[in-house]
Amino acid sequence: MPRISPKTSERLAKILLWGAGFLTVLILAAIVIYVLVNGVSEINWEFLTTPPIGGLSGEGGISTIIVTTVYLILITIFILTPVGIGAAIYLSEYAQDNILTNFIRYAVETLAGVPSIIYGLFGYALFVSALYLGHSLIAGALTLVCLLLPTMIRTTEEALRAVPQEYREASLALGATRWQTIWHVALPAALPGIATAIILSTGRVIEETACLYVTLGGSAAMPRSILSGGRTLALHVYYLAMDTMAFDKAMATAAVLIIIIVIINLFTNWLSQRFRSAYTAMEEGRP
């Protein structure tokens, strides 16, 4: 085998690496542009503000779907935030570093990797069937809380850990109790990180399909209470494409989804940059 000179292999490797990067961009561009090109022309005020006809027909807009998605986000975040932040505070501020804490951390990590459909199966068995909530917003939201909790805990814990220890020590030295220190010092300092965690969770609610497919029901009607069923934007894409062949409307809904995701991405980037700069300011502010 002829030996390739280091110089040639260097050049070859770089070409291949740039090729990989280029291909990745190409794939993303292909997906996003395809969806946007096919979808955006369908999006107009009427599409956003009229309800879908539902059932066999893929016609109509997505107003009720947007409302359902917003409801689901609000209910989920409302339950998720206190539990998630509470657990994160416990893990970062109170728990000792022992086998149990390590095990909890491992469990949280594992739970974060469990597929959505397993949460769906669980939510279906517990919330839909055993607790008689039926296929409903509340069953879907509770399932989502279980799904999102591990990530929420992990991200919040990381944000709390990033707060310099000196802050806490200073506060405690001034005579504040532990809780006062957490409430008035650690939490405010970690706020941008926690906000990021909440926004990321919101994004996940919007993206999720599998666990909602088996817990949310799929009615296209306007939900009247938390016991009503419904479908989110992502589920609507699935139903439109699979059940009604309304690929144009599915593309339009998918385009709305992508636009929302891009906005959320930009927002979290902005937040985490702020967080980073706030943190460096803290670091620099140290004597």
Partner: peptide
Amino acid sequence: VEIIVQGG
């Protein structure tokens, strides 16, 4: 009257 119709 509200009638919630779902598949399944």
